[in-house]
Simulated assay, not measured.
Amino acid sequence: MPTGQPQHIAPETLPEVVTRYLDAHRVRDTPGALAAFHPDATVTDDGRTYRGAAAIESWLTRAAGEYTYTSELTAALKADQDHYVATHHLEGDFPGGVVDLHYRFALRDGRIETLVIDS
């Protein structure tokens, strides 16, 4: 994420590619979620980094079936034209049962180049 002060934005004003990914991921549509990424994209989640379409597809498939949970988009930030953060509140049967996750997106050419998920 670039330095500088990110601005709070309405979640519905996130870029279309971010919204498309989040919507597809929420309903466990792996092909739809994967289509939002560059072929050489990276995802970092739970301390692991996944590089390229095949690794991201495997991560999406595993993440979709690992736990049952609800997810609510609660906040959004814009750092610049290519860097956004979407905060989700999750509740479910995962360890701890409740968490707020920050999805940190870097975009390139209208697609997701990097996604870092942290709490």
Rank of each mutant, 00 (worst) to 15 (best):
Q7V: 15
I9W: 13
A10W: 05
P11T: 12
E12L: 03
E12S: 11
P15C: 09
P15N: 07
E16T: 15
E16F: 07
V18R: 06
V18F: 10
V18D: 05
R20P: 00
R20K: 14
R20C: 01
Y21F: 15
L22T: 05
D23Y: 09
A24R: 06
H25E: 11
V27F: 12
R28H: 11
P31G: 01
P31E: 00
G32H: 05
L34P: 06
A35I: 02
A35V: 08
A35R: 08
A36H: 03
F37P: 02
H38V: 02
P39C: 00
P39R: 10
D40K: 10
V43M: 12
T44G: 07
D46A: 15
D46G: 13
D46I: 09
G47Y: 11
G47D: 05
R48C: 06
R48H: 14
R48G: 02
G52F: 01
A53L: 08
A54E: 12
A54C: 00
A54L: 05
A55C: 02
A55D: 13
I56T: 03
I56D: 01
E57Q: 10
S58Q: 15
S58C: 00
W59S: 03
T61G: 04
T61H: 08
T61A: 09
R62M: 07
A63L: 04
A64R: 05
E66P: 00
Y67T: 06
T68I: 08
T68W: 09
Y69M: 15
Y69E: 04
Y69L: 12
T70Q: 03
E72F: 00
L73H: 09
T74A: 14
T74W: 10
A75C: 03
L77A: 00
A79T: 13
D80R: 07
Q81R: 12
Q81V: 10
H83S: 14
H83W: 08
Y84V: 03
Y84A: 02
Y84D: 00
T87R: 15
H88N: 11
L90T: 05
E91L: 07
D93H: 09
D93K: 07
F94L: 10
G96T: 07
G96V: 10
G96E: 05
G96N: 04
V99M: 11
D100P: 03
